[in-house]
Design a protein around this nucleic acid. Structure first.
Length: 942
RNA sequence: GCGGGCGUGGCGAAAUUGGUAGACGCACUAGACUUAGGAUCUAGCGCUGCGAGGCAUGGGGGUUCGAGUCCCUCCGCCCGCACCA
């Protein structure tokens, strides 16, 4: 065997481990570069061929940058808290830590086999107490912070407290719920006053500890509050908005309902604007930025207050079209709106309550699928138009969402299709407020339309009317300009076992932090991983789990755990100083490594991990712990590798299987066949019979060639479809180097594509040919010190240029092609010269590190090839004495003329004209202009 | 509905700033060497034409000496968001 990849790969993996080849230190005068993969959740199934796609690409890039002379941080770890290990624990009683440990060992083994250059001394595991100690520490930090809208930044809570002590809360512009004061019971305090949340320094100082804490809770960046949450009964836990898709849980697809629960939340909404603006400063794909922009959902408009007729309260609405205010003919509230009950008149009470009850019964999913159906109910109440004083009926309707804006809309049927449909259905007036526009069929939503019947706005359009109407509203104190965001605060509690415990205990109802010096708060053991009988989270089963203070008093702990995204929101910082036992990471090291320069991972985390990590980074930045406020400078999202499933066709109610090409003659049922039983779509019949007991007696109708042909389909890889390709078998058959090259060769990394091993032979051949370049027919090294010829240097430098360019523009796939061309050409030239082959080897080494390392050693180098410099491109070698200039004449006929390369355009022109002026090409035509363009194409214009 | 991306041989794909479209690989065809071939080597391989040539990058139009690339329009596919007021 000539290229013995099995031996070579094992040898070098051992060597690398022994020599600690990939260990990096921040004590370096080189420039840093940080290449990061999204760390995996170590599931029981192990890696499939899709996983390594991104890992290979980033590994190649890390190796490339190392050759380019950078000090490269390229770490790996595990997002090891999570649901599957816990579900497994519930079924088997095995502690999730054991399952996790086992899975990690398997992942590590697979990762090692791929020859990745991770610095494993920096490994992190989110479930390790030495790691989650700092997850808890960051939680405490966020808890002890508030968001100053004035500065658009988080500040330590003590700055707020000292403000309260001197000025009360006057002049504080904090991110806080507008109606927060309605949720704090300070009635005995502000007895007799119509309290709207203001308090003086004197008020503050006379409050007791509990009352102060209750108020502070509303300002904190992470807070405990009763909020409407996504409750998933099947999983027994609440979920964040991004974990719910179409009203079903993202994991498992279980129904999710809305429930009012006392939960920890993260005030990410405070950062809406900065999360939006920050996108402009980072190099991410447009599509994923768009996902985040949508999720943040910024819209400009106004809040307008409408006085309720005969009552003291106002109803506040949010609108993006305050300019259409003269077209308001009714108002609609969400069925859950808090004023509905109090404003409904007795005669409508029954109908309103029935409507509310019906709406409540519907799941989120039903409500979404019922979008086309217009429904609503009049409440009997009226509000007064702030400008015209007209009486406006107040309705409730499902199309208004409680969670967006104020949960109430001013309905302008002329300008909004939903309001229009509602008005039509319930026979409400549709006043026209647009000049010369017919609204008898549908609403006019264009922002260009000119307003009429609108008093002082007549003749204006959206752009000119909006500032005007906002000014008027402010003048009469009926409203103000307002930017609204769709982004909601993120629920931070989970009723699960396998997650970070909160560093929190309770005195009565008031939560207190466990001091930083007492962290980590270690996850206690429990007898079962299920909720208690009374419905408390699993941690409540730990009977002795209590907080005890200096005086020996013990207190109840927080029984919820943190969500999966807690640990992953800051892990990229921990890698910088993974073994620090006193800080989350030292400031010097964070300063040295800085932002992640290249982040590689799936695009599916757009509204989850990637948003939360950006959020936490900004908080840490605001509070002065790190020096940057965007974590990931550049990101590339690798596509998914899809599986190619094979199908057999069973004739209905029989044990007879028919070949794909004859299946249309029968009534058949398609069944997945394990892809290991199929080769080039031909089924191994004996193996199939032995595969599952139910097929032992199967009979087959073969095609005319006597073969059983399977059908195929491209699907996501999964166990149940029997189409999972693990890297292991391919590594065994072709070697890791081949697999690395092949996965890159498949196409652009960003693209999703079906896994197809057909082409792997071609790539394997390429590596064998590369190997053969260095050897003679007897497989002996045959590299000479002879001087390279011009032709050989030309091939080399052409390859250096293209590979370097392609690496720099993250075009992993074209690099392989370029190397193939180089090898083919050098083979044709029978080039076996060290001065050519050695630089070629360095170009190959990021893709096929094992082979490169082996040949590098055979060339007599004692140091690892990772220390080799990236070859320098020398333009001079690409230049010829003469160049064939393609000439196009009249845009049609093309021919070449040979000219010295250093000819100026003028000389070229003269020469071309000389050639052109032959009767053959120039009968009756006069060339007027010569254009010489970069690739030395000469156009003769006549 | 709104937003983003994409459309090139039998297949995966190249073409980086508008400059010889289809590099490289797979599959296929023919030949050589072979007891054999899922090994290796040689040649061919967009369509059309005996040929010189002509036609080709989803369809139509435009800008340009020159368009896969830029502009307009239509068609198709993928992804994200969605009674968000």
């Amino acid at each position: 065997m000539e290229y013995n990849f099995i031996e070579i790969e094992k040898k070098w993996q051992d060597e690398w481990r022994k020599r600690q080849t990939y260990k990096v230190s921040e004590e370096s005068n080189k420039q840093k570069f940080y290449v990061l993969d999204m760390f995996p959740y170590p599931s029981g199934a192990g890696l499939h061929v899709g996983h390594p796609l991104g890992y290979i690409a980033s590994d190649i890039y890390a190796r490339f940058m190392r050759h380019k002379g950078f000090n490269v941080l390229h770490p790996m770890g595990y997002d090891s808290f999570g649901l599957p290990a816990e579900q497994y624990a519930i079924q088997t009683g095995q502690h999730p830590a054991i399952t996790t440990e086992k899975n990690i060992a398997r992942y590590r083994e697979q990762l090692d086999k791929m020859g990745f250059c991770y610095d494993w001394s920096r490994e992190v595991r989110t479930s390790d107490p030495s790691y989650y100690k700092y997850t808890q520490w960051i939680f405490s930090l966020i808890y002890n912070a508030w968001f100053n809208n004035e500065k658009q930044a988080a500040e330590p809570i003590h700055t707020l407290v000292s403000h309260f002590e001197t000025n009360g809360n006057f002049g504080v512009n904090a991110a806080i719920d507008e109606d927060w004061f309605t949720k704090v019971d300070l009635s005995k305090f502000f007895f007799g006053k119509n309290w709207e949340g203001d308090f003086t320094a004197t008020d503050w100082k006379s409050m007791n500890e509990e009352q102060q804490q209750l108020i502070l809770m509303h300002y904190r960046l992470t807070y405990l509050a009763d909020s409407m949450v996504n409750w998933c009964p099947a999983l027994g836990t609440v979920l964040a908005n991004d974990e719910v898709k179409d009203g079903l849980s993202e994991r498992g697809g279980h129904p999710v309902e809305q429930k009012l629960m006392r939960q920890w939340s993260m005030r990410i909404s405070a950062y809406a604007e900065r999360l939006l603006q920050g996108l402009e400063t980072i190099d991410w794909s447009e599509s994923i930025k768009e996902v985040q922009r949508n999720w943040i959902g910024r819209s400009e408009g106004a809040r307008v207050k409408f006085q309720l007729e005969g009552r003291s309260e106002m109803i506040e609405v949010f609108t993006t079209r305050p300019d259409t205010i003269f077209g308001v003919s009714f108002m609609t509230l969400a069925p859950e709106h808090e004023l509905v009950n109090s404003i409904t008149t007795p005669e409508y009470r029954e109908a309103v309550e029935a409507y509310q009850a019906a709406a409540k019964l519907k799941t989120e999913r039903d409500r979404q699928s019922d979008v086309k159906n217009v429904s609503g109910q009049f409440t009997g109440a009226y509000v007064i138009h702030p400008f015209t004083g007209a009486q406006i009926p107040v309705w409730i309707g499902e199309y208004v969402l409680a969670g967006y804006g104020t949960g109430a809309v001013m309905a302008v049927p002329a300008g909004d299709q939903r309001d229009y449909d509602f008005a039509k259905k319930f026979n409400l007036p549709i006043p026209n407020i647009f000049e010369g526009i017919d609204i008898s069929e549908k609403a006019e939503s264009s922002k260009e339309a000119v307003l009429c019947n609108s008093d002082f706005l007549n003749g204006l359009n959206y752009k000119s009317a909006t500032p005007r109407v906002i000014a008027e509203l402010e003048k009469i104190e009926a409203g103000k300009g307002k930017v609204n965001y769709r982004l909601r605060d993120a629920v931070f509690s989970r009723q699960r076992y396998w997650g970070e415990p909160f560093p929190v205990f309770y005195k009565g109802e008031i939560p207190y932090l466990i001091g930083d010096e007492k962290l980590p708060t270690v996850l206690p053991d429990v007898d079962k991983y299920l909720p208690t009988k009374s419905g408390e989270p699993p941690l409540a089963r730990a009977a002795d789990w209590k907080f005890t203070d200096e005086d020996g008093n013990s207190y109840r702990m927080e029984y919820n755990t943190m969500p999966g995204w807690a640990g992953s929101s800051w892990y990229f910082l921990r890698y910088m100083d993974a073994n620090n036992a006193t800080e989350f990471a030292s400031r010097e090291k964070v300063n040295y490594w800085g932002q992640v320069d290249l982040y590689m991972g799936g695009a599916e985390h757009g509204t989850g991990h990637l948003l939360y990590a950006r959020f936490w980074t900004k908080v840490l930045y605001d509070l002065g712990y790190i020096g940057f406020d965007e974590p990931f400078k550049k990101m590339i999202n690798q596509g998914m590798i899809l599986g190619r499933s094979s199908f057999v066709y069973r004739i209905k109610d029989s044990q007879q299987f028919v070949s794909f090409d004859k299946k249309d003659q029968y009534e058949t049922q398609a069944l997945h066949a394990d892809i290991s039983l199929v080769d080039s779509d031909v089924l191994d019949i004996e193996a199939f019979k032995n595969w599952l007991p139910e097929y032992a007696n199967a009979t087959f109708i073969l095609n005319d060639e006597g073969k059983y042909i399977c059908g195929t389909e491209v699907e996501k890889m999964s166990k149940s479809r029997y189409n999972v390709q693990t890297p292991d078998e391919l590594v065994e058959k072709f070697g890791a180097d081949t697999l690395r090259c092949y996965e890159m060769f498949l196409g652009p990394v960003e693209q999703s594509k079906p896994w197809d091993t057909k082409g792997i032979n071609g790539v394997h051949n390429f590596l064998r040919r590369f190997w053969r370049l260095f050897h003679d027919a007897e497989n002996q090294m045959a590299v000479s010190a002879e001087e390279a010829t011009k032709a050989e240097l030309k091939v080399l430098h052409k390859t250096i240029k293209k590979v370097t360019d392609d690496m720099q523009r993250f075009s992993w796939n074209t690099v392989v092609s370029t190397l193939m061309i180089g090898v083919n050409e050098l083979t044709d030239l029978k080039c076996k010269k060290q001065s050519v082959l050695e630089p070629m080897l360095v170009l190959l080494s990021p893709y096929a590190p094992h082979m490169a390392e082996e040949l590098w050693a055979k060339l007599g180098h004692a140091e690892s090839i990772t220390t080799a410099q990236w070859p320098l491109f020398n333009e001079a070698h690409l230049q010829d004495d003469a160049f064939d200039y393609p000439v196009s004449f009249n845009g049609k006929t093309r021919f070449n003329i040979s000219l010295p390369v250093d000819f100026t355009p003028q000389q070229i022109e003269a020469e071309v004209l000389k050639h052109e002026l032959t009767p053959k090409y120039l009968e009756g035509k006069d060339p007027k202009k010569i254009i010489v363009v970069p690739k030395r194409i000469v156009n003769v214009v006549v």
